[in-house]
Measured scan of single mutants.
Amino acid sequence: PDLGLTQLFADPNLIENLKKNPKTSEMMKDPQLVAKLIGYKQNPQAIGQDLFTDPRLMTIMATLMGVDL
């Protein structure tokens, strides 16, 4: 199971919303991170391994779920 990750990354406004959010806007200036996020739309399971190697993803996930870290 993808634990709902498919829906989190399926939002067509995902990148724009993250660019507008004060907690994630600075991160979204990294083209490699943006490319990763776009890739998760097609393969949400890929985030599982990346969560352990890129701490920014935890902040992004929390933001998408509405959790304040």
Rank of each mutant, 00 (worst) to 15 (best):
I15Q: 02
N13R: 08
L51P: 05
I38G: 06
K29I: 03
D30L: 02
M27I: 12
I38H: 07
T24L: 15
M27G: 01
V34P: 01
K36M: 09
G66I: 07
A46G: 07
F9S: 01
D50C: 04
M27S: 03
I15N: 01
D30N: 04
Q49P: 13
L5E: 05
L3R: 11
A46F: 10
D30G: 00
D11S: 06
I47D: 05
E26I: 05
A46E: 13
Q42R: 13
K29Q: 11
I60Q: 00
D11W: 02
D30K: 01
D50N: 05
M27K: 01
P31G: 07
P55Y: 12
A10W: 09
G66F: 08
I38L: 14
L51W: 12
M27L: 14
V67W: 15
T59A: 11
R56A: 10
Q49N: 10
N21Q: 04
K41T: 14
P22Q: 05
D50P: 03
M61I: 15
Q7L: 09
L64K: 01
T53V: 10
A62Q: 11
I60R: 00
K19A: 09
T6W: 12
P22D: 07
P31H: 08
A62L: 10
R56H: 09
M61C: 07
P12Y: 03
T6F: 14
P1N: 13
Q32S: 12
E16D: 11
K29C: 04
T24Q: 00
P31F: 05
G4A: 14
P22C: 05
N43D: 10
Y40I: 08
K23V: 12
E26Y: 04
L57P: 00
G66K: 06
T59E: 10
A10D: 12
E26A: 08
Y40P: 00
M28S: 01
G39W: 11
E26T: 07
K36N: 05
L14V: 10
Q7T: 13
M28R: 00
F52D: 15
V34N: 03
L64I: 13
Q32Y: 12
N21A: 03
I38Y: 10
P1H: 12
L69W: 02
P1Y: 01
A35E: 13
M61A: 13
D68L: 03
K23M: 08
K23R: 14
R56F: 08
T24C: 04
D2H: 13
M27P: 01
Q45P: 08
I15R: 01
L14C: 06
R56K: 06
M65I: 09
D54S: 02
F52K: 15
K41S: 14
L37A: 00
L33Q: 01
M28V: 04
A46Y: 11
N17T: 14
L57H: 01
T6E: 14
L37P: 00
Q45N: 12
P44Q: 06
A10H: 13
P55A: 09
P1S: 10
P22W: 04
V34S: 03
T24I: 06
N13S: 10
L8R: 03
D54W: 02
G39N: 11
A35G: 07
K41F: 08
L18Y: 00
L3W: 09
N13K: 09
K20V: 09
K23Q: 15
F9T: 02
A35C: 05
A46R: 05
